[in-house]
Design a binder for these strands. Structure first.
Length: 218
DNA sequence: GGCCAGGCACAGC
DNA sequence: GCTGTGCATGGC
């Protein structure tokens, strides 16, 4: 059976509903989390966020005014802490220099924001799209490893890559920001709940489309 | 104890 | 352009 992108969205929505993704209370926290979660499980990111907050570091301004190695000590549990502390510090500094705060940044155009973010060290495609969508409410779509895996297994796309998925999703879901936000959130839930190394296919909402499920039944 | 996790940059081909 | 590698912790 064939499944389109909006078909996948509808299947997932029927099961998960509104996920309220991204798990952050402020725009600043989205940006921080977007760097910290790079190739890292969210539970380790949470520990780092907790440690930062415990020490009064909650905003990009707090980060920019902190020595990098101090920041590194706080985010230790998120792994790659030397890299990430440098990335976070420079990203925070550059945003503050150019825009002052994220609220005023969100009134800029997509292309201007992309041109600003893309060259920043440590901001790749997924990090940029996460920031655009979840911190700045722009119609971007963050493609992660989960997304590729699910699109591939469910046959939504033949040979999904980061860029082909981005294009196809924006074609199918358009510029509907709440929908784009929720789609990514639902894909994360799906991947975490059902697609892990020891998959739980029995109750998966899209198992009837999934090549992995079929293979596991043989 | 080994494998994996929501990436990214950079070297070498 | 594509592929391999370093970056590091915590949970299973």
């Amino acid at each position: 059976m064939n499944l389109s992108i909006s078909g996948l969205y509808n299947k997932l929505y029927a099961y998960f509903g509104d996920t309220g993704w991204w798990p952050a209370e402020t725009r600043d926290e989205v940006v921080i989390g977007a760097i910290l979660t790079q190739n890292t499980s969210w539970s380790n990111v949470e520990k780092a966020l907790f440690e930062m907050k415990k020490n009064g570091v909650r905003t990009l301004e707090d980060i920019a005014s902190l020595p990098v190695d101090q920041l590194a000590a706080y985010i230790r549990s998120s792994g790659f802490y030397n890299q990430k502390s440098r990335r976070l510090h420079s990203l925070a500094t550059r945003i503050l220099e150019k825009y002052g705060k994220l609220d005023s940044m969100s009134s800029e155009s997509m292309t201007d924001l992309e041109d600003f973010l893309r060259p920043i060290n440590g901001v790749g495609q997924e990090t940029m799209d996460s920031i655009l969508l979840y911190a700045l409410d722009k119609p971007a779509f963050a493609v992660d490893k989960y997304t590729i895996r699910i699109f591939s297994r469910t046959g939504v796309m033949e040979d999904p890559t980061l860029y082909s998925v981005k294009i196809a999703v924006s074609k199918d879901l358009g510029n509907d920001v709440p929908m784009l936000k929720n789609f990514h959130g639902m894909l994360v839930y799906l991947a975490k709940d059902f697609c892990k190394t020891k998959p739980k296919c029995d109750e998966c909402p899209v198992r009837s489309y999934c090549a992995y499920y079929e293979a596991s039944m043989e």
